[in-house]
Each structure stands twice: as C-alpha cells, then as structure tokens.
Amino acid sequence: MAVNPSGDFADLARRALRNAGYSMKAAARETHYDPAFLSRVLNRKQKPSPALARALDELTGTGGTLAGNLQQDERLSHVAAHPSRIDGAAVSALAGALAAQRHADDIVGPGPLIGAAEAQREALLPMLRDARGSHRDALCAVVSESAQFAGWLNIELGQYARADVLLNEAIALADDIADGSLVAQAYNLKGNIARQRGQHHAVHRNFVAAYVSESAKRQRVVNGAQAASALALLGRRSEAERMLSEIEALREKAVDETPPGTAYWLSPEWLSLPIGHVHHHLGRPQQAAECIRHGLDSLPPEHRNALWTREARAALEEAESA
C-alpha cells in the first residue's frame, strides 16, 4: 500500500501547529521536546513517537487526531506488509484509518490529506479484486468509503470533475454489496457538487436518490432537507413545504437512533442545520437563523469553523442580516 505513515503525520502536525498559532520552536518549548528532534519529525526524517503525538494533540487542541492518525498508520503499514491476509482485523484497521482521516479533515482541512487518501484508494482496489471469502463484502464497503472520502476531499478543494468520477465509483462499489447507506452518502455528495455549480434540478435529483436509498432516519432528514431546499430554489414552494413537513416528522422519530460511524456528527441538534437551510430558501430568515445557529452550536468547538461549515455560517450571517 503506497502510504507514507510519517509523511502524513508531518503534514497534519504542521497544519495543526499553524492553526493553533505555534511555531516549531514554540511547540518544542511548550512540549519539552528537543527542537532538533521535532524538526526531524516535521520534516519526515524521523518517525514520531506516540508520546509526541499525544503532546502535540494536547498543545493544539486537536482532540487526539494526531495520536489516532499515528496509530492507524501503524496498522495500515502492517496490512500493507501482509496483503494476502485480509481478515476481519485487517478490514477493521482499514476502516479505522478512514475514520481517523475523516476526523483529521475536520481539524486540518483537505490539503494535507488528499494525497494519502487518493493513494490509499488506489492501493485498496487491487486488494478488493483479489479478495475472496467472508470478509470480501466488508472490504468492499471500506473501498467504497475510501473512494467517497477522496471524492469529498476533492469537493472541498473545488475539483468537482475528479470528485464526480470518485463518487460514481463509490456508488458502483456500494451497489455491488447492496449497501443503501453508502449509496445515499455518495449521492449526497454528488448533490453537493451540483449545488456548488448552481444546478438546482441536479441537486434535487441527487438528494431524492439519497433520500430513497437510505434507511437511517437522521441521514434521511439531511437528504430530504437538501431536496426541499432545491425545490424552494426552483420555485416549487408547495412541494418544498410538503417535504419539510415530512422530514420534520421524521426528525422526531430519529431522536433515539444512533448515527453510523461514517456520519458521527449527526446529532439530533445538528439536524436543525439542514432544516434551517430550507427555511432560509423559503424566505423565513428568523426561523432559518434559529435553526442554523442551533445546529452549528451543537458541534464540538474544534469543528465549528471546519471548511465544510462555511456554507452554513454564510447562510446564518445572511439570515441574521435580513
């Protein structure tokens, strides 16, 4: 598997220090590490230690992201060294690595992650082609998620054509194992591409596809809200109002549901955010502001200014000034 563990860590650590306002020398002083050692780690000349990763997490307030990334890189290296041994533990290690990358994206953004994410997907595809037996479907799900995550990072960087290719691949892989949740997530991201392009009919089409493919109630609320927003923007107000009523009722039923690990942020409070967007597009700024603010405030502090929240923050500012 073409993944450089210490290289990924160095990128993440440098970005985390920069975001927290620390120079390398200041970080070394605060963590009581030798500046020369820290320099070698951040320049990929020496492997980081778990203790250093924990110290930098504490210093930068990244919630264990760096330590988790280092641990998952070590597991990935083990899987890469034994490609013929794809068992349950190996699949779990790969899934864990993806989870660590998703959390890292919330902290440092797509730039330091996209190279490793693309390389990981590229390495997983031949593993899947050669896979047999009872763990093949679980591996296929991880490969679909890997393609989807790489697609998401490309979306964040505005590289929509590449993202669309990856998301189509993710859908095909998810269809291969009849995983409606993964299909829905990929259609959700395709809907986001269409929204960035101002293609409201495509937004509606993709989010309806996500809505009907998904069984998890919280994710259906999100997808339904996006479809309702598109209807409002298309001037189909009565249809938008009907869908809004439907998803608000669904939200009440989703309170006790546990979201999937791939959508860990979907708390009942966060669901106010996409519903707020519907009110915004229906011309109800007071309700929109209340819902969007409630959704943003429910996020952990380190996620509130993540790149993927910028659209919500812009909508909140617009609603509050209306």
Results as ranks from 00 to 15, higher is better:
residue 90 A to V: 10
residue 141 A to Y: 05
residue 74 E to P: 01
residue 107 I to A: 05
residue 47 K to V: 13
residue 144 S to F: 05
residue 122 E to D: 15
residue 110 P to N: 02
residue 82 H to A: 13
residue 163 A to L: 06
residue 93 A to G: 06
residue 58 E to Q: 15
residue 139 L to H: 04
residue 154 N to G: 05
residue 116 A to Y: 06
residue 123 A to N: 05
residue 125 L to K: 14
residue 122 E to Y: 08
residue 64 G to D: 03
residue 90 A to G: 11
residue 156 E to M: 14
residue 157 L to V: 06
residue 156 E to S: 12
residue 158 G to F: 05
residue 137 D to L: 03
residue 143 V to D: 02
residue 75 R to T: 09
residue 125 L to D: 11
residue 72 Q to P: 00
residue 100 A to L: 04
residue 61 G to Q: 04
residue 109 G to E: 02
residue 87 D to Q: 05
residue 141 A to C: 07
residue 95 A to H: 11
residue 106 D to I: 07
residue 136 R to E: 09
residue 147 A to H: 10
residue 124 L to F: 13
residue 134 S to K: 13
residue 153 L to K: 00
residue 47 K to P: 00
residue 163 A to I: 11
residue 99 A to K: 07
residue 117 A to K: 07
residue 131 A to D: 10
residue 80 A to N: 11
residue 156 E to P: 00
residue 131 A to M: 14
residue 51 A to H: 09
residue 156 E to C: 11
residue 148 Q to W: 04
residue 90 A to W: 07
residue 134 S to W: 04
residue 144 S to E: 09
residue 151 G to R: 04
residue 162 R to A: 09
residue 105 D to P: 00
residue 131 A to R: 07
residue 68 G to C: 03
residue 156 E to A: 14
residue 100 A to D: 02
residue 52 L to N: 02
residue 104 A to M: 06
residue 166 L to D: 12
residue 135 H to F: 11
residue 131 A to F: 04
residue 129 R to M: 07
residue 101 Q to Y: 03
residue 49 S to F: 01
residue 61 G to R: 07
residue 96 G to V: 05
residue 48 P to T: 10
residue 123 A to W: 08
residue 75 R to W: 09
residue 111 G to C: 01
residue 67 A to T: 06
residue 107 I to D: 01
residue 150 A to M: 05
residue 76 L to E: 00
residue 118 E to Y: 09
residue 161 A to K: 12
residue 60 T to W: 09
residue 106 D to H: 03
residue 144 S to M: 10
residue 134 S to A: 15
residue 160 Y to G: 09
residue 108 V to Q: 07
residue 55 A to R: 10
residue 154 N to K: 13
residue 88 G to K: 03
residue 142 V to Q: 01
residue 81 A to P: 03
residue 149 F to I: 03
residue 80 A to T: 14
residue 57 D to L: 07
residue 165 V to K: 14
residue 145 E to N: 10
residue 148 Q to Y: 04
residue 108 V to F: 15
residue 100 A to P: 00
residue 122 E to C: 07
residue 54 R to M: 08
residue 150 A to N: 02
residue 74 E to Q: 13
residue 119 A to T: 08
residue 155 I to D: 08
residue 88 G to Y: 08
residue 68 G to E: 10
residue 141 A to Q: 11
residue 119 A to D: 15
residue 141 A to E: 10
residue 163 A to N: 05
residue 71 Q to M: 11
residue 81 A to I: 05
residue 128 L to V: 14
residue 71 Q to T: 15
residue 77 S to V: 02
residue 124 L to S: 08
residue 69 N to Q: 10
